[in-house]
Simulated scan of single mutants.
Amino acid sequence: MSALRVTAERLTILDHPDADALELAQVGLYRAVVAKGAYRTGEFAVYIPEQSVLPDALIGELGLTGRLAGSRRNRVRAVRLRGELSQGIVCRPGALDGVDLERAAADDTDFADLLEIVKWVPPVPVSMSGDVDAAPDLLPWIDIENLKRYPDVFAPGDLVTVTEKLHGTACCLTYHASSGRVQVTSKGLGARQLALREADGNLYWRAVRGHGLPAVAAALADRLGADRIGIFGEVYGKGVQDLGYGTDAGAGLPGFAAFDVCADLGGRLRWYDPADLLDGELPLVPRLFHGPFDLATVLALAAGTETVSGRDLHIREGVVVRTADGKYSPRIGGRAVAKVVGDAYLTRKGGTEYE
């Protein structure tokens, strides 16, 4: 999941092709369905993204009582309204009366705390949890922002690699060359600098052992002269999320596909494309495109069916885009990397989103 931010945004208003009383308010490449005439192009409003959990008072103010997702009907998720995908909520909450939203947009002000909006965190199954230890020296994975929210992360023609985004759970391994110590965590736990204690029944440790990640990381540390190696991959299969890719993670070896590598070179972190280092060593996420960045190409690749199983078993979650040279993006304040999630994935029924 990307980081939750509730911000003021400049709107572009578009016609709804199948509803006279509705329009589409565009923020970046996101579109939210709004009442016709409520906003005009160039005006500013607050954008509340998907996976936001709203307080009851705000839900009532916005007229959304009983219309949101989750058991408490308080969570924002993508929906189709009269055939058009609506992602997030565009509004002007009363709590922000008198606030200059144009200035707030320029200052990139985050209103999440003021509006008491929090990020939805799903409950974690027992097999994906466990006892933890403090681990301040982990190489943690990062939140990836959505290209629809930040469409200017890449410039046309930037050399990029597009890989399939798998619907599993991120497994983060840190190998310490000086001691041979191996730390394993999830994205959520790693963000809190916590590592999972080794346990036979733990999903992440089963994947790490079964796919031989410690030996691969040790060889890579020696090859690169690194103090620490981070191998980041997706653990997947039936029992992990609702999309299983033909693998039963409960009855057998969980699926694993590496999507990133980080090396600590004397205190300087360098990121590598796993295809350059791990091809033939570990399973990798499928590479769908490598070449000049083109927005239409990326959006098209986010749709369709998965390629992991080789049998087109179900929908594709989406794609992840990275620059080939790992350049810095001032727009998101970090590596130039972004994701696009497919429309069919967002609106599927009975989906799970464990971290």
Rank of each mutant, 00 (worst) to 15 (best):
P123T: 14
V90N: 02
L253F: 00
P283G: 02
D264G: 04
V124C: 07
V261L: 08
G267R: 14
G304N: 06
L282A: 07
R72D: 11
R92S: 10
F259R: 01
C262P: 06
E9H: 09
D20S: 07
T185I: 04
E116M: 11
G210P: 00
G28K: 10
I48H: 01
P151R: 02
T174W: 00
A8I: 08
T352C: 07
T109Y: 12
W271C: 07
Q87W: 07
G28M: 09
Q26I: 08
D113S: 07
A226Q: 03
P151E: 06
Q241R: 03
S2M: 13
A217F: 02
D260N: 10
G246Q: 03
R268F: 10
Y236A: 00
T41W: 07
A199D: 10
D107G: 12
D97M: 14
F289I: 13
H167K: 00
R67W: 02
I315P: 14
R270T: 06
T174R: 05
L14K: 11
L243Y: 01
S127W: 04
G212S: 04
D137I: 09
T161M: 12
P214V: 03
E306H: 05
L147F: 13
E355F: 04
W205F: 00
P136F: 13
G225A: 02
Q193H: 15
V341D: 01
T185L: 03
P286T: 04
L101R: 03
A199S: 12
T297Y: 03
G267Q: 12
L282V: 10
G237Q: 01
G230Q: 02
H176T: 11
T109W: 10
L278Y: 06
G291R: 11
D133N: 10
A170N: 14
T347M: 06
C91R: 09
